[in-house]
């Protein structure tokens, strides 16, 4: 795992043992698993529709450090899905609004904010020192950059995207699975997309499930597979995905 400078290992406290008791009962979890989460640094790109459930569930699960990144301010039209932001936050910087709620949801964890655009000049530094990147972005160009950063730092990248009553999910492990660019070599056109809040709710919680599994090494993550969630007909389709031997990002 990538480390930013010297990282002191944090031990579980009595508070932690009580707070996280019910999840430590899960097979393969235990105190050791909880301690891993406490010592894991997560980079979450986007504090919007996906970012809201992702960050909420990462926070309550007790991940020790969350870095939250977003360039936008809260718009009234965000509130049908971006549950970290409330009416009083319209016009506020999203990372500030998110930070305020997350520190109240779990005051014991560390949260770092980045307000600005993730671009090709800053993406590697921003994500350096994290153990995993969660994709809660709303556009392909930034996803391609995050994918490159995950490959560079050799850390897992949990992708999700949503549209209307649908969603997509896959887990990328650099060196082992196809990368984001292998799976989606071409971006769709930009659009104002229709979306129901429950869709990022589903996909975001699936991303957190994947993050927990990958960090703890339990279960079987959705690697080499792409989930197509069809909420309109309540169908979960799985598609096998393969490395592209000519992939410009990972080289296959």
């Amino acid at each position: 795992m990538a480390l930013k400078g010297h990282r002191e290992v944090q031990e579980l406290t009595d508070y932690d043992r009580k707070r996280y008791n019910r999840q430590m009962m899960i097979k393969g979890f235990g105190e050791e698993g909880q301690k891993k989460l406490k010592n894991t640094r997560v980079f979450v790109a986007g504090v919007g529709g996906l970012g809201s459930p992702v960050l909420t569930y990462l926070a309550v699960a007790g991940f020790g450090h969350l870095t939250i990144a977003d360039m936008d301010v809260v718009d009234l039209s965000n509130l049908n899905r971006q549950i970290l932001h409330w009416d009083k936050d319209v016009g506020a910087v999203k990372v500030n609004s998110g930070f305020e709620k997350l520190t109240r949801i779990n005051p014991q964890i560390e949260i770092e904010k980045f307000q600005g655009k993730i671009d090709e000049n800053n993406v590697y530094d921003l994500t350096k020192g994290h153990d995993i990147i969660i994709d809660a972005m709303d556009n392909f160009p930034t996803r391609y950059l995050l994918n490159r950063a995950a490959l560079e730092h050799k850390i897992p990248f949990i992708h999700a995207s949503v549209w209307g009553l649908e969603g997509r999910l896959t887990t990328i492990i650099p060196g082992k699975t196809p990368c984001f660019e292998c799976i989606f070599p071409n971006a769709p056109p930009k659009e104002v997309f229709p979306i129901l809040g429950a869709m990022p709710g589903v996909l975001g919680t699936l991303q957190v499930t994947e993050a927990i599994k990958v960090i703890l090494g339990i279960g079987k993550p959705i690697t080499n597979r792409l989930l197509l969630y069809d909420g309109e007909y309540m169908e979960f389709h799985e598609i096998p995905v393969n490395k592209n031997p000519k992939c410009p990002a990972c080289g296959g």
């Binding site: 549209w163 659009e191 990022p200």
Partner: peptide, 10 residues
Amino acid sequence: IALFPPVSGG
């Protein structure tokens, strides 16, 4: 046969 576009929403 199935056709699907990548979707970019988040």
